[in-house]
Write a protein that binds this DNA or RNA. Structure first.
Length: 254
DNA sequence: GCGACAG
DNA sequence: ATCTTGTCGC
């Protein structure tokens, strides 16, 4: 059993990690959020990235997770895993991890290749309690995780330029005030993420630090992983795979 | 009290 | 997230 598989087993087996009540879940987030660490990410040193995603039926009857490892240089799939299970926690905005991480962890435990970085479809620190699913996963396993979301949950920002690669900062807070230069220069502006245009003229993605990476490196990595489409390749592959897997399991069950 | 609300 | 036809554009 790999080192990561062992960590996964310990994390899944600890009841403390899986509250069944939203109130307890929020309390748990506040505790774990203190363990989030920002560390430099040397993008040039990254070889393998694992994209993660989850798919589920509207009626909550099934839920599948996929982990797909890609070579950053060639963007070719090195290994992929998909598993299926049932939801154990409801969908509540801000409490994603408690619903999606159990199956994601199961998939990660089945991987035989060890990626350098993990990429989640969701937020890291750009979250009301600075503890989105990417941070949640990162802290549970103490591994480097980057968050890449498709819409905003929390924070304010202005709109980046239309060219691929342009970006604007996401700042903590809920007011209508956008973080223009004076606002950022102002003391106390807390940058929690980055709005990144990965494709010219197309809606941007929202990048944030999950755990043990930094925002600059995370954004650079996401941009490299999105040479053609809005969503970074590892997540696109994982999205497609878990969707197919869920349908296949559904068909098999009848 | 009211509006917002990742996937 | 999922359910889905047609449609606009490179």
């Amino acid at each position: 059993m790999s080192e990561i598989a062992e960590r996964v087993a310990r994390v899944l087996d600890d009841p403390e990690n899986w509250p069944d009540d939203p109130k307890e879940a929020v309390a748990r987030q506040r505790v774990l959020a203190d363990r989030v660490r920002v560390e430099p990410l040397d993008v040039d040193a990254v070889r393998l990235v694992a994209g993660l995603d989850v798919s589920y039926a509207t009626d909550n009857s099934a839920l599948s997770a996929a982990a797909v490892i890609l070579d950053v240089q060639t963007l070719e799939v090195v290994e992929s895993v998909a598993i299926s299970s049932e939801p154990t926690f409801p969908y509540i905005s801000g409490l994603f991890g408690f619903r999606e991480l159990p199956p994601v962890l199961e998939a990660l435990g089945a991987l035989r290749t060890t990626p350098d970085v993990y990429l989640c479809d969701g937020f890291g620190m750009a979250h009301p309690r600075r503890f989105g699913v990417a941070s949640h996963l990162g802290v549970l396993l103490d591994l480097p995780v980057v968050g890449s979301a498709k819409s905003v949950l929390y924070g304010k920002h202005s709109v980046p330029g239309n060219e691929r690669g342009s970006w604007t900062p996401m700042v903590a807070g809920r007011s209508e005030v956008v973080p223009d230069s004076p606002a950022l220069a102002r003391e106390g502006a807390e940058v929690i993420g980055r709005v990144l245009r990965t494709r010219a003229g197309v809606k941007p993605v929202y990048v944030s630090v999950g755990h043990r990476v930094d925002l600059e490196g995370s954004a650079e990595l996401v941009l490299r992983l999105s040479p053609k489409y809005r969503v970074p390749e590892p997540v696109r592959h994982a999205d497609r795979l878990c969707g197919e897997h869920r349908k296949a399991v559904l068909a098999a069950k009848g």
